[in-house]
Structure formats: structure tokens, C-alpha cells
Design a protein around this nucleic acid. Structure first.
Ligand SMILES: NC(=O)c1ccc[n+]([C@@H]2O[C@H](COP(=O)([O-])OP(=O)(O)OC[C@H]3O[C@@H](n4cnc5c(N)ncnc54)[C@H](O)[C@@H]3O)[C@@H](O)[C@H]2O)c1
Ligand SMILES: NC(=O)c1ccc[n+]([C@@H]2O[C@H](COP(=O)([O-])OP(=O)(O)OC[C@H]3O[C@@H](n4cnc5c(N)ncnc54)[C@H](O)[C@@H]3O)[C@@H](O)[C@H]2O)c1
Lengths: 228, 228
DNA sequence: GATTGTGAACGCCTTCACAGCA
DNA sequence: TGCTGTGAAGGCGTTCACAATC
């Protein structure tokens, strides 16, 4: 089986596999089985094999997966084998935290997978021209120019809810097709554009449902349930 | 139909309905239909009705839902009808952003639904005793005491990956049953404890898959797809 | 007339189980 | 012998369609 419309859930699991593979010391453990990968990710071995089988045949039967090879394949599948440049709009509390994160650990969790934070944008004159960690803050008016020049492929939206749709539309007009949105609003996008929502408020509220005594503590299964 | 094991996906959608209802001016629009609620949330009307029907009968046929009543019911279902106290561990880049968010908009998006940020914890001596926005930073050693005293029901984990499991275990030992985790690690928890992951790195990586030209831009459906 | 509540059909993802292969 | 790859079965959430009801 191969590439027949890959379900979103599958694509969403691939980075988890990739992370585990990236954290393995290849010299000590050059090979990994779907069972061990399953233990480290919390995904069942069968599921992992099914997921991978959508993209090709990467393992050796009776042996397992070569860690380096599988890692390379996953990066290729996720299109992380070339550097992916990322921009951010809204240099407030959250935006700054994110910019510092990318910098502090520039060699680590983000950039080892090919993601690079390249530019930040804000409306506030006092923030423009500042440098937060490795990234400079530009005026919003320069977005079209810099999206092209820096080849920004993903935009992170950390603007207030009221500004998110407008900023998104302007980015889309400049050709950006992928967004990570932190503003608590529904965003409307044309076909071919992708928005992932990172809405902690909603997650906190749904947690409340589980925060009191589990009434029907029926099964004791489901270690590590919840939102992934 | 009523309460026969509610699927997680359903619980995860409820806060979205709640948000829309909370943003409605009840004086101008005291009634809302599942169609309008659907437009504002991006969920199909049928889905909304099915979701709600798991918990009871809240609408009037031929009319719609009373906004105030439905809002009250959702808050009750989500156990947000009493104040839910929230703590945070790890007062770094992200932790501080979050503490400030809760404060800046204390009357707004978090607290209007009954969530209250009450205490923060850190290991770093220099941070202990500081006050970030409305919340004081305490030493980790005081967690058991303050979890009880402040009745903390949800803990937000913004510590480094290496510390997350230990902190979680200590919170669980003090009776916390719900966590929002930002550290990029798999966490293991006993039955009856719930962990929601807010792992932006994984979300960014899966976005990369969609960030280039949509090869098979088959359907132009799916406005607003992706992670919710 | 309009909209809810819901059983039934549907479709999709997950799980299962084993054949295939090193 | 051990683990992958995968068709088939199963489970579960979503969609459909309409009867019930205001
Ligand atoms: N901080 C958090 O912990 C947190 C948590 C959940 C959700 N959010 C959401 O993330 C977003 C940002 O939150 P924050 O706390 O960083 O807010 P913030 O007010 O600190 O920062 C917003 C930034 O966006 C800039 N901005 C405003 N309008 C703009 C525009 N039209 N174009 C460009 N820049 C503009 C502002 O100048 C400011 O720097 C909000 O939508 C918020 O609801 C934040
Ligand atoms: N900042 C971001 O944008 C971002 C993005 C994605 C994920 N994360 C994750 O969120 C977590 C926090 O990120 P950050 O950038 O705020 O890191 P940070 O280093 O700025 O902050 C971590 C804080 O935790 C405290 N701490 C460390 N060990 C502790 C312990 N055992 N007990 C109590 N406190 C302890 C530190 O003193 C520090 O204040 C990390 O796991 C990170 O991977 C952060």
C-alpha cells in the first residue's frame, strides 16, 4: 500500500516517530523495532507499521528499522529534508517566548528537524527593529517582501484574536500555505491552505471535565490519553 | 441517548461551543440554532446536536437553544460551574507568558469560564518569591501543601523535558488528576490521571508536510482543517 | 414552518492476525 | 526465529435523514 491519500492523523504522528529517532544514539542502537518505537511513543507497533507502510517499505523483516534510514525517510516525507523557514507575527508574551525558545535551543528540538525561525513581525513601533534572540522584528508592511526574500513557508500567529484573520489573509496573499495559530478564533482559509490550532484555553477547559474524581473510572487502560 | 461513555472528541469540542456562546450578546440574540452555532465553530449542525444529546435535552424543537441555558449546561458538564484552580510549574519563557496571559485578561477568556491561575512553582531560587502578574512563585517543595490549600485541580507543566515526569509524579502524589503538558516528552501516568499535550514542535513539523505546493489538491473542501 | 433529537447507514481509522521474508 | 508488511475484520465517530415537537 502506498500514498493513497494519507489521513491527517497519520501525518500528525510522524513527527512523534521522528523525535524519538532523533533522540536515539545511533552508535549504541542503530536498529529499532516497531515494538520499541511503540514503547517510546505510546503508539501501538501495528499502528506504526501501518503508518509507515503508507509511504513505502523502510524496514527489514525479522530485524527492524535502521534508525538513520528511517529518520531520513521521515524527514523526506515531512518535507523537512530541506530547511523550512518559519516566520512569526505578534511579538507579545507568547511570541517572545517562542522566539527565545527557538534561539536557546537553536541546535536542538526545532532546528535539528530542519525548522528555522527567520523573522518576526509586529504592528507596535516600539517593537520594530528590536532583536529577540536570533530574530529581528519587522513592520507588518514588510511581510510580503520578506516572505518572498526569506522564503517563509510557515507562519506562527501570536497576534490578538481580532487581528488574526487579517494577518492570515495577508500572508496567504503572499503565498504562505501553512499556519500555526494561537489566537482563540476560527479562521477561514481558501483551499490548499492549512491551519493548525494551538489553543491552550480550549485544552484547559476540556481538562476540567476530567479534573475531578473520575466518576466512571471503568477501565484502567489508556495510560497517556488526551490531546496529542 | 445519554451519558453512555462520552468519547474524548466530544468533550474536546464542548469548550468550543462554550466559547461561542460566551461571546454572544444574550440581549441581542437570546436563542441560537445548531446551524448558526455550526457556522461559528466550524462544526456541522448535526454533529453539534449529537454531541449535546449525549448529555441531555437542551433545545426547543422548531426554535433552537437558549444561549444562557446552554452555556450554563455546558459549564456544568465541563465542571466549570465551580471555580477551577490552576497551578503552573516552570516559570521560564513559556510559563511567564502564560502567567501574564491569565492576568492581563483575568476577566476574559480564561476566567469567564471559571478557570483561575492561583500559584506558580519553580526550582530556581532567583524566581522564588517573585510575583508574575497576579501569581506568586513558590519553591517546588511547597507544592504538596499549596495543592491542598489552594485546591489546585489542574497543573500546567512548563518545565524542561527532563523534569516533567518527576514533577508530574509529585503532583499526582498530591492528588492532581489533570495536566496540561508543554514539555516534549511522553509522560506515564496511573489510571484516572489525564494529560493533555500542547506540543507545538510536533505541530510545526506536521505543518511542514502541508507547507509546500499541495501536490494532490484534489478536493477544495475542508476549510479550516488540521489540528483542533 | 422550523429546528431538534436520534436511530441507522456510512466511512474511516485501528486492531488483528498471519503470510512473507531476512 | 523474529519482525515487518498488509489484507481483513472490527470499532467507533460522523453523517444522514426523518419523525417528533414547539
Ligand atoms: N500568552 C499566552 O499564554 C496565551 C495563551 C493562549 C492564547 N494566547 C493567544 O495568543 C495571542 C497572543 O497572546 P499574547 O499574550 O502574546 O498577547 P500580547 O498582547 O502580549 O501580544 C500581541 C502582540 O501582537 C501585536 N499585534 C497586535 N495587532 C497586530 C497586528 N494587526 N499586526 C501585527 N501585530 C499585531 C501586538 O503589538 C503585540 O506585540 C492572543 O491571540 C492570545 O489570545 C496567548
Ligand atoms: N518557550 C517555548 O516557546 C516552548 C515551545 C515549545 C515547547 N516548550 C517546552 O516548554 C517547556 C518550558 O520551555 P521554556 O522555554 O519556558 O524553558 P525555560 O528554560 O525558559 O524555563 C523552564 C523553567 O523551569 C524551571 N525548572 C527547571 N527544572 C525544574 C524543576 N525540576 N522543578 C521546577 N522548576 C524547574 C527553570 O528554573 C525555568 O524557570 C520546555 O519543556 C520546552 O521544551 C517551550
Amino acid at each position: 500500500m502506498r500514498q493513497r491519500r494519507v489521513p491527517d492523523v497519520v501525518v500528525n504522528r510522524l513527527p512523534l516517530y521522528l523525535r524519538v529517532l532523533s533522540e536515539i544514539d545511533v552508535d549504541h542502537a542503530p536498529i529499532i523495532s516497531s515494538y520499541e518505537l511503540g514503547e517510546r511513543t505510546g503508539i501501538t507497533p501495528g499502528q506504526i507499521r501501518k503508518d509507515l507502510s503508507m509511504f513505502g517499505v523502510f524496514g527489514k523483516q525479522g530485524v527492524g528499522y535502521d534508525v538513520s534510514i528511517l529518520r531520513g525517510e521521515l524527514r523526506r516525507i515531512l518535507k523537512l529534508n530541506r530547511i523550512v523557514n518559519v516566520g512569526l507575527v505578534g511579538v507579545g508574551n507568547l511570541g517572545q517566548a517562542f522566539l527565545r525558545y527557538g534561539a536557546d535551543r537553536q541546535r536542538e528540538i526545532l532546528s535539528r528537524e530542519g525548522l528555522r525561525m527567520r523573522a518576526a513581525f509586529d504592528q507596535d513601533e516600539r517593537k520594530i527593529g528590536r532583536r529577540i534572540a536570533v530574530v529581528e522584528v519587522y513592520p507588518v508592511a514588510r511581510m510580503p517582501e520578506l516572505i518572498k526574500k526569506l522564503d517563509l513557508k510557515i507562519m506562527i500567529l501570536t497576534v490578538p484574536a481580532g487581528a488574526a484573520q487579517e494577518i492570515l489573509d495577508r500572508c496567504v496573499a503572499s503565498g504562505v500555505k501553512a499556519f500555526l495559530n494561537f489566537a482563540p478564533v476560527k479562521l477561514t482559509v481558501p483551499a490548499g491552505v492549512r491551519v493548525h490550532h494551538a489553543d491552550f484555553t480550549l485544552q484547559l477547559e476540556s481538562l476540567a471535565y476530567y479534573s475531578r474524581e473520575w466518576e466512571g473510572n471503568e477501565e484502567q487502560t489508556n495510560i497517556e490519553s488526551g490531546t496529542d
